[in-house]
Design a protein around this nucleic acid. Structure first.
Length: 708
RNA sequence: UGGGGGAUCGUUCAACGGUAGGACAGCGGACUCUGACUCCGUCGAUCUAGGUUCAAAUCCUAGUCCCCCAGCCA
């Protein structure tokens, strides 16, 4: 435990940014502008969400950027502005959640809370001004006609027949639009720019539409609403925003943004675009997240599996970790997909420092200490944080009957298994050394249901007076003193890194991870857990970081969400152990890059370069338009299925017979792009066209095991 | 096939004509009353082809690939 030697105190103002870190391109522009005394060296940004959904981690990137830049620059300010120009999608619920989320992230907009809807009157006046200048006109074309007149990406549009209406007529019509004299959708106000522009946004874009909907702030006052492209530059201008930072898809809109400010001749803000955040194993669009909520695929917007700010909060993420993450991912214009492992790293780093340690047993296995007096019990004082005595300690009861984790015992352990097995000695964390003397199996299931151990009284507190070492330390709870609790184990929401980019043959929801939530209802925990407050975070030793659920946890019924596991090097060892199959296999030879050693015959080493694995076929279907190929989804124990195309259709007219079969897969081939999709491996089969069979195993092998 | 953007280790961000660097991930090791933490080591990249230059990720030319745009959404 050494991490407290330079404990930092992260705040929104100081975390991240060391003076030496190079500026991203936006901060470089701003530094340049300040140097040139542009806008009197003033820096004023804004965060402009539309209240049509909950904020997610991608918004956090924008929030950290906008508020962060304001905070870094002397006198800098950042406004919170709701871009609420489409009443049909927006709702007060979302506004409230946005307040909560931005504040929770640690940012403060002071008295600078704005709504685009507050500018409706001014916006209307600006529109009138544009009409007077001959730069806008009322158009009677239907939506369908407007689309047709707009042209296509490669063909120019043509002028609307209403394009040259006299100013007075436009003024009159626009007034009547506002007065509600026309039905929804019958007319729009358009900018008069250039129907032949190669930039479609400049082909006389719609500025106002007629829309009878109750606005969450203005109620029924308006039946015309301004479009984003008209509203945004004017809102920025009215607020004196110096740098209007938005995402890449608005790059094409910048000429229109500039056009509006030019024509209206008002304060000139500069729009700068950066790449939005994408994260592996999740989706990041409000539309898709809404879909998950509405279809009940997750419980709610704040479901701990969601990448929403509220979901992350409920999961146990801290504002500090999210801000740190946003600092680390950087700001640029490249389309990027950030590894969720980085987010997990950030939360582990933060929580490692802050979280009190507790002992909790998720899957209890009863242990009886045979030589411990039956009626006795004692209390051990255990530190809340082994690296930081200032965090205090708590009392943990011990008795003859304990629970340990089922995983911490193996009847027939492999090498390097440092936990309990027959005859093995381990330390019970903070208590005693114990040695397993026997175990009891359920006769029906063959499952180990009880362990018997002896303890060494001289090792009280966990140290041995004779200096003997034990390799393993396991966590435990005293059975009679322990309390029951529910634990929700969360995992990634999707099984593939990029659910929306999966070669478009399937909907993103097809890749939802069925194991993204596992609930365990009868966990046993040390009694101090009773005191846990909703939202409070602990490290359950050797398991991970968990927080008491803010909605469902109570003293009577504690419920914990797993925020993130601890890094688990044992899991890796286990994996390699499995794949090696036999112990003490020699190291794989390094593949030399020298090309001169080409040999006519393959060596055993060459063969060893093929990674052969046990694969279990989970799905199988014939490939349309192919008389040979089957599309197989094969489980290699990787947490996702691999798609493999195999030319074995003739041998298996009934594809369903393949499902469940254990086959041999060449697992380390470079994936091959085929006409029908990516093939990520090869299945070994024998025979010829007429007499063909895949190589299978009898018996039950675990997916992913090495084949040799 | 129009317009706007973008291509640097597996991922992500830097390097702004002068030693391609950091973080995450991976791998190896040390330490350890958490197989955690921490520490050390290691692997590893300039889209391609030409050109300019003493010197190119950076400048020029020609290609290739990827993303965005045809809402009365934002």
């Amino acid at each position: 435990m050494k991490e407290h030697e330079d404990s930092k105190e992260p705040t929104p103002e100081t975390d991240g940014k060391e003076a030496s870190t190079p500026l991203d391109f936006i901060r470089t522009i701003i530094a340049q502008d300040r140097k040139n005394n542009k806008h009197g060296a003033r820096v004023h940004t804004r965060f402009p969400p539309e209240p049509n959904g909950y904020l997610h981690i991608g918004h956090a990137k924008s929030i950290c950027l906008n508020f962060g830049i304001a905070a870094e620059n002397e006198g800098g300010l950042c406004n919170l502005r709701f871009d609420d120009t489409n009443p049909s999608k927006e709702d007060q619920e979302y506004i409230d959640s946005i307040f909560e989320d931005v504040r929770w992230l640690g940012f403060d907009w002071g008295d600078r809370l704005y709504y685009a809807s507050d500018y409706f009157e001014k916006l209307y006046e600006f529109a009138v001004a544009l009409i007077r200048k001959g730069k806008a006109y009322v158009c009677d074309l239907s939506p369908e006609e407007i689309r047709q007149y707009r042209g296509t990406l490669t063909e120019p549009g043509k002028d609307s027949p209403y394009r040259n209406r006299p100013v007075d007529e436009n003024l009159d019509l626009f007034k009547k639009m506002r007065a509600g004299e026309f039905p929804d959708g019958s007319r729009v106000l358009r900018a008069k720019i250039d129907m032949k522009s190669p930039n479609i946004n400049m082909r006389d874009p719609v500025l106002y539409r007629i829309l009878r909907a109750v606005h969450h702030r203005t109620g029924n006052k308006w039946c015309i609403y301004p479009m984003y492209d008209f509203t945004h530059p004017i809102s920025d201008s009215l607020e004196g925003i110096t740098h209007s930072i938005c995402t890449l898809e608005f790059e094409d809109h910048r000429p229109l943004y500039d056009w509006s400010l030019d024509e209206l001749d008002i304060f000139r803000s500069r729009q700068i675009e950066f790449a939005r955040l994408n994260l592996t194993y999740t989706v990041m669009s409000k539309r898709k997240l809404l879909e998950l909520v509405q279809e009940g695929l997750v419980i709610s917007w704040d479901d701990p599996r969601m990448p929403t700010i509220s979901g992350l909060r409920r999961r146990g993420y801290t504002p500090e970790a999210i801000r740190d993450f946003c600092d680390r991912i950087g700001v640029a214009k490249n389309d990027s997909m950030v590894d969720i492992a980085l987010l997990e790293h950030c939360i582990r780093e933060d929580l490692n420092m802050k979280a009190h340690r507790r002992m909790a047993v998720l899957n209890p296995l009863k242990v009886v200490i045979d030589n411990y007096p039956a009626e006795a019990a004692e209390e051990f004082l255990i530190q809340n944080h082994p690296g930081n005595p200032e965090m205090g300690s708590r009392s943990v009861p011990f008795s003859r009957t304990l629970y340990i984790e089922q995983d911490d015992f193996m009847e027939d352990p492999p090498k390097k298994f440092f936990r309990l097995s027959p005859g093995a000695e381990v330390r019970l964390r903070g208590a005693y050394f114990v040695t397993c003397t026997s175990f009891v199996k359920d006769e029906m299931t063959g499952k180990v249901i009880e362990l018997h151990c002896t303890y060494d009284p001289s090792t009280r507190g966990g140290d041995s007076p004779d200096g003997r070492k034990v390799k393993g330390t396991v966590h435990w709870v005293s059975a009679p003193h322990s309390i029951e609790a529910e634990v929700r184990l969360y995992d990634r929401l999707f099984t593939v890194p990029n659910p929306v980019g999966e070669k478009e043959d399937r909907d993103f929801k097809a890749y939802l991870n069925p194991d993204s939530l596992k609930t365990i209802v009868s966990c046993r925990m040390e009694p101090s857990i009773k005191e846990a407050k909703p939202g409070e975070t602990f490290q359950f030793e050797r398991l991970g970081y968990f927080c008491a659920d803010s909605k469902d946890s109570s003293m009577d019924h504690p419920v914990f969400n797993r925020t993130v596991t601890l890094r688990d090097s044992w899991a890796k060892i286990e994996k390699t152990l499995e794949s090696k199959g036999t112990p003490e296999k020699a190291k794989k030879p390094h593949v030399e890059k020298t090309a001169e050693m080409k040999k006519p015959e393959a060596t055993i080493d060459d063969f060893a370069r093929l990674d052969l694995r046990v694969g279990i076929i989970r799905e199988a279907e014939a490939v349309k338009d192919s008389d040979k190929l089957l599309r197989l989804m094969v489980d290699l124990g990787e947490g996702r299925l691999r798609q493999i195309f195999a030319g074995i259709s003739k041998a298996y007219p009934d594809v369903s017979a393949l499902i469940g079969q254990s086959v041999i897969v060449v697992a380390n081939l470079k994936p091959r792009q085929m006409k029908f999709g990516l093939s990520e491996g090869m299945i070994l089969a024998g025979g010829d066209e007429d007499n063909l069979s895949i190589a299978t195993f009898t018996g039950s092998l675990v997916a992913g095991k090495k084949v040799s």
